[in-house]
């Protein structure tokens, strides 16, 4: 039988929560089409309960992931790049279909996304050095500031850049030890759902990244109001939704990363995802902890320590 005549095997796209691949507890799916309106797949349409479950999974994973050594996290992130490299073709196909790009442009986007994992893999054990350090206080004290992950971060992935943008918002959140509940691009969720499959085989502990697809506002609202979520990245929200979510986020004083710039037209991602990302997405979800300890006065006259 020639290949042309072979009936293809469709993939059932599923959510990625707690290292597992559940369907939406609501049983709902929605049609995902390519840029020309052609049906690509059905994606799970997540509910508030899926969001809640994802937060539980992310919280459960936080202790282990934030407690892992920075070197270990770096290796895990690098492993994601390695795994993606081997599955490039699949992502090129999904990105091309989702974003209406030519194969060569989609390939460039996927290459950039893989390289982004490599960039952040290298940051895990350096961000503490550039954003922390010893403070020369005026007294006999050792004083050290260290950045620490803030906790569970809800991430509204960009709506347009379904893969490079997605990677660019996930990787910095988890590089520093946070865990993430990610809402994929509503119209183009397939690369995100496939990324879950890669993460599951890349030594990323279950629950560190949780990926939900569906209607952004429906999933985001319970996350923004959730008292056990520490921060929210509003990149994928339009101005009206961003404002609404920021208000809800104030209930437990979540750290909020607003869309850049805040009045971005929802029709286009305002960020240039190809540009060098800098460190602001790393530092946006870090807390600075400052520890003091007396030093005594070695060598001073008399009994001093």
């Amino acid at each position: 039988m020639s290949e042309n005549n072979r009936l293809g095997v469709f993939k059932t796209y599923k959510l990625y929560v707690g290292g597992k691949f559940p369907r939406s507890e609501s049983g709902r799916v929605y049609e995902v089409t390519d840029s020309k309106g052609q049906w690509l797949a059905n994606a799970p349409q997540s509910s508030r309960k899926d969001a809640r479950d994802a937060v539980v999974a992310a919280r459960k994973a936080f202790g282990g992931w934030s407690g892992a050594t920075a070197y270990n996290r770096g290796q895990v992130l690098y492993r994601v790049a390695e795994m993606l490299e081997g599955r490039k073709e699949q992502f090129v196909r999904e990105v091309a279909a989702s974003e209406g790009l030519s194969k060569s442009k989609a390939a460039a986007v996927v290459d950039a996304a893989i390289d982004r994992w490599v960039w952040y893999a290298g940051w895990t054990d350096k961000i503490g050095q550039i954003s922390g350090g010893a403070n020369p206080v005026a007294g006999p004290f050792f004083n050290l500031s260290t950045p620490e992950p803030t906790g569970v971060v809800a991430v509204l992935a960009p709506q347009k850049s379904s893969f490079l943008g997605l990677v660019s918002v996930i990787a910095p959140v988890i590089a520093t030890g946070n865990t993430a509940v990610v809402i994929a691009s509503a119209d183009a969720p397939l690369p995100a759902l496939s990324l879950g499959e890669v993460l599951a085989t890349s030594d990323v502990p279950g629950g560190v990244v949780n990926i939900l697809s569906g209607v952004t506002a429906e999933i985001a609202a319970p996350l923004a109001a959730h008292q056990d979520v520490n921060a929210i990245d509003l990149t994928g929200a339009d101005a009206a939704l961003a404002k609404e979510l920021e208000i809800a986020a104030a209930d437990n004083l979540k750290r909020v990363l607003r869309p850049q710039p805040v009045d971005a037209d929802s029709a286009s991602d305002s960020e240039d995802w190809q540009a060098s990302p800098g460190t602001h997405r790393l530092t946006a979800f870090l807390e600075t902890k400052t520890v003091w300890h007396p030093t005594g006065a070695l060598g001073a006259a008399g009994s001093s320590y």
Partner: peptide, 21 residues
């Protein structure tokens, strides 16, 4: 945000101050 070990309520302009949660 601030942990004082074997001391407490020490402040200094060089030392970052602020909270979690």
């Amino acid at each position: 945000g601030v942990v004082w070990a074997n001391t407490f309520n020490k402040f200094d302009p060089t030392s970052p101050f602020g909270g979690y949660k």
